[in-house]
């Protein structure tokens, strides 16, 4: 990076450290923090949408849809989410390859599952074997995002359906008394009113989501845990920057990163919940009203 770093073996002390912290590998490590933030930013809205769909389905009048919604919300209660994180990407991968196989190679006769192998025709392979490394990486990342969205969507569906049940019955009945249709009641009263009840649960969920991001490592993504293990491991004399086992320091760094992230989120979410409590017929809303008066 810097010109003065050309010969690392001649460096010492602070200069050595500065040069060490700006090597290409280190920069990739810093970049992987952005991957974590990207995951958070992408997963949060998608999971919210999934949760919304799940909660509405669980309240639907049409029973197959209601069963589907209820199953979806119930599944994360009994089953560890780690299982979903391992299961969903590989199941999706095989499902997509299977569909592509059916479309792209209709005259392929060999069975797809042969003993302990999953064989599709070469054209159906995902990601394509001739794809660029970037494509290959992003494919894994997208599968991870979908796994996260499904699991956190189920958590969110729990929170949102609880919040929908918490909206006072009288408010919905008032809307009905004004002659609104069920759809109008949902759009104009239920959904706007539900947020104040959903926010504590959703804040909790956001914290959980932050703390779930290191699981990307289990899905084979080159995330911060991967790089911390890689860079922290003992580097012998053959490396430009030899050092003993520093993994503890790298992981302590990650610990501090997560503590900061959760702390900042906590402060922001507290403000947001105060904002949403304004004018609500709840204890928090009442407290705000008294302060204002």
């Amino acid at each position: 990076m810097f010109l003065s770093c050309a010969d690392p073996s001649a460096l010492s002390g602070l200069n050595w450290l500065i040069c060490y912290l700006t090597t290409d590998k280190q920069l990739m490590f810093y970049g992987s923090f952005l991957v974590v933030l990207l995951l958070l930013v992408v997963v949060a809205p998608v999971a919210l949408a999934f949760g919304f769909g799940g909660a509405l389905a669980a309240r639907s009048g049409f029973w197959p849809l209601r069963m589907l919604g209820k199953t979806y919300t119930a599944m994360v209660r009994g089953i560890p989410d780690v299982i979903f994180f391992l299961f969903v990407p590989i199941a999706l991968d095989q499902g997509l390859e299977y569909m592509r196989h059916k479309v792209l190679c209709p005259d392929w006769t060999a069975p797809i599952r042969q003993g302990n192998d999953f064989l599709v025709c070469p054209a159906a392979k995902l990601p394509p074997t001739d794809a660029s490394p970037f494509y290959q990486e992003s494919y894994g990342f997208v599968l991870a995002v979908i796994a996260f969205a499904i699991v956190f969507g189920a958590f969110a569906a729990n929170v949102i359906s609880g919040a929908m049940n918490a909206v006072p019955r009288a408010q919905l009945e008032t809307a009905e008394a004004y002659g609104m249709t069920p759809g109008q009641v949902r759009r104009r009263v239920l959904i706007p009113q539900m947020w104040t009840y959903a926010l504590p649960g959703l804040s909790n969920l956001w914290m959980i989501l932050i703390k779930a991001t290191p699981l990307l490592y289990m899905l084979g993504i080159e995330d911060i845990v991967y790089w911390a293990r890689e860079l922290g491991a003992t580097k012998s004399k053959i490396y430009a920057y030899p050092h003993p086992d520093w993994r503890l320091w790298y992981f302590l760094g990650l610990l501090v990163f997560y503590l900061l992230l959760t702390r900042v989120s906590e402060v922001v979410l507290k403000r947001l919940s105060a904002r949403l409590a304004r004018g609500q017929a709840t204890m928090a809303g009442e407290a705000l009203r008294k302060v204002g008066a």
């Binding site: 703390k211 779930a212 503890l248 992981f251 990650l254 997560y258 503590l259 959760t262």
Partner: peptide, 15 residues
Amino acid sequence: RGSPLFIQFFVTYEA
């Protein structure tokens, strides 16, 4: 409560 259990495992193991 503020950090992931996964990272806590790693930190403790390395320590």
